[in-house]
Write a protein that binds this DNA or RNA. Structure first.
Lengths: 143, 143
DNA sequence: GCTCGATCATTAACCGGTACACGATTTTGG
DNA sequence: CCAAAATCGTGTACCGGTTAATGATCGAGC
């Protein structure tokens, strides 16, 4: 039971639960806010583009988009020029969530990092970045 | 898109993928190694005990146990004295995985934290612990 | 102009996680 | 002793994630 992996797993779980609760207050499920964030930045993105932006697989985006379309957050429309493509367009409901969700996310980050000094926070970010690089490199050299 | 949440999310995903690949080399799925770890420490634990030890819900353990029983890693047996209880017992196969899996996990932690100095590592652990506490406190005061 | 390969979304099947409802058993209180 | 409450495992249904297979469409080359 290595120290870091164990602690990271626990922290991750708690963080995930907190994020879930925060976003659910606005009728969303975890991860849907990320998908919306892509559309807020570029409305009319395709599932493939969204998947690439979020580092998830395309089927995952398709499934989420289906649920979110049913929830009235976005609509699907095929591209006129290239009929293979599907474009996801925000509804007014989906667009209206941007401000509250972004505020909620900022608030969550503030609460989560409240116990950290500024230098602690910087060190944490830099260490996390190194972890991220190592893990990504590990994945690449395996595949 | 707050800095820490975003970075943590990315690092988490990469770490998860790396752990998945590491454990899959031994025929396991992600999370099953944690369940096994509980049984390595205390064979014959009940699903509820395992769930409490792993901070997951009981149905989750039940489902995982069903798959792992099918995979020949453990067996189910009802408790003789209290017939409500079910106890999970390791098979030889499940027991034999302890050394290789623990080694794999140590190796993964070493690779992941290779770029960190000793003080960086300590600071990371302490910061992660604070994050964990904050997130847990946040969850409690919400529920 | 037509075929063959590349590209894209979708579906199905699986795993880990959750909440909720259900049923069986044990324990407690009267 | 017996009814009511607490405990425990399980089933169902959902969400996020994956891989692999399918099907439609577009583009390049002959």
């Amino acid at each position: 039971m290595p120290e870091f992996l164990d602690l990271h797993s626990k922290a991750s779980k708690a963080l995930r639960a907190a994020a879930e609760a925060a976003v659910r207050r606005h009728g969303l499920h975890l991860g849907q806010d990320h998908l919306l964030a892509v559309l807020w930045r570029q409305d009319g993105s395709t599932p493939g583009e969204v998947a690439a932006a979020l580092n998830v697989t395309t089927p995952n985006v398709v499934k989420a988009a289906t649920r979110m379309a049913a929830a009235g957050l976005l609509t699907r429309r095929r591209d006129d020029r290239d009929n293979r493509l599907v474009r996801l367009w925000l509804t007014d409901t989906g667009r209206a969530l941007q401000a509250p969700i972004e505020e909620e996310r900022r608030h969550l980050e503030d609460q989560i990092t409240a116990d950290l000094s500024e230098t602690e926070r910087e060190h944490l970010l830099s260490a996390l970045a190194k972890i991220h690089r190592s893990a990504t490199a590990l994945l690449n050299e395996m595949s």
